[in-house]
Structures are given as C-alpha cells and as structure tokens.
C-alpha cells in the first residue's frame, strides 16, 4: 500500500508524545500499539486531523498467562477515499491491565462505538470510562461471568441457570 504510515505515526506522536509504542506489519495490515492513556486522544486526532472518520470494529482479546498486561482492546479505523489505494484501514491496539481493566471510551468520537464497547464490557468485563450507558448487551443483565475471558469455564452452567431461574420467576409471576 502506498500510504505513508510513518508520517502518520509522526503526526500522532507530535500531538501525543510517546503515544505510538510500536508499529507492526503483517500480511499487508498495519497495527499500531497505542499507549492506553492516550487512546481517546489518538482516536480523536485520527478522526479530526487525519480523516479516519469510520470506526470499522472495536473488540478485545484476552491473553491470559501469555502476556502482561492481560487484555488488548483492538480498534479498526478506516479512512474513505475515492480511489482504491486511498482507502486506509488501520488497526490500533491498547494494552489493558488484568486487574480492574479500564480504558477510556471512544463513544464521543464515534457514536458507533456505543454497542461495540458494551459488547466488549459484556464479554470481557473491560470498563470503558466515559461510556454513556455501559450495560450488558448480549448476556442477561444479572449474568455474572464474562464469557470471552480465557478463564471462563464453558462447562459451568450455574451462572446461566441462575439467570434463567430468575427470568422464570419474574415471568411466571
């Protein structure tokens, strides 16, 4: 791809010194490791100054016992272009600690991040500070575990059973 990622990194780093920790190229895709504390600033800069107006995806990965910090929140941002090679997709990653996982929300930059962040909270228990309505989205409201964590026991039915029994009680009443 002809896009110059180095000048992009330079632009981001001059606005937020030390924000971009590393650049990884793999299979034609570019990943930037972003300092967790400057993630919302970097995202805002990418959107306002560099034209990455579209948040394609937001998710997280659990690297339990593989890496510390344990979690990675992954952003896929996209810049539209009239020509094929002007469409740029960039992956941002921010590392989040295992205890009390918390990161700034980007909902005020892209409103579309709302449900995506709720899903990450639902599945990994990562808290997005500044999110307007951080609730569970796919799992029942009173469900306790976080299913996509690697230490989630898929054979343990107790949590689902509790939610189901409560629903039965409330529905039947």
């Amino acid at each position: 791809m002809s896009f110059d990622f180095d000048s992009l990194i330079e632009a981001v780093n001059s606005a937020y010194p030390g924000a971009v920790k590393e650049k990884i190229e793999y299979r034609g895709e570019t990943t930037l490791i972003i300092d967790k504390d400057s993630i919302s600033g970097v995202c805002g800069h990418l959107k306002e100054m560099l034209g990455f107006t579209f948040l394609a995806d937001l998710t997280a990965v659990d690297y339990l016992e593989i890496r510390t910090p344990r979690y990675e929140v992954v952003y896929h941002v996209h810049r539209f272009g009239p020509e094929i090679d002007e469409n740029i997709r960039l992956r941002l990653k921010a590392e989040v600690d295992g205890d009390n996982p918390k990161i700034d929300s980007v909902t005020y930059i892209w409103s579309g991040a709302d449900w995506l962040e709720r899903e990450v909270y639902d599945m990994f228990g990562i808290v997005f500070s500044g999110h307007p309505d951080l609730r569970r989205i796919l799992m029942p409201e009173d469900y306790e575990p976080f299913p996509l964590r690697k230490d989630f026991d898929v054979r343990d039915r107790e949590a689902s059973k509790r939610s189901f029994e409560r629903a039965l009680r409330e529905g039947g009443g």
Binding site: T53, F54, L55, A56, F80, W110, S111, G112, A113, L116
Partner: peptide
C-alpha cells in the same frame, strides 16, 4: 454524517 458516525 450520522451514518458514518454510527458506523453504518
């Protein structure tokens, strides 16, 4: 603008 913002 809203459509892009919402990620449609």
């Amino acid at each position: 603008e809203d459509a892009i913002d919402l990620g449609l």
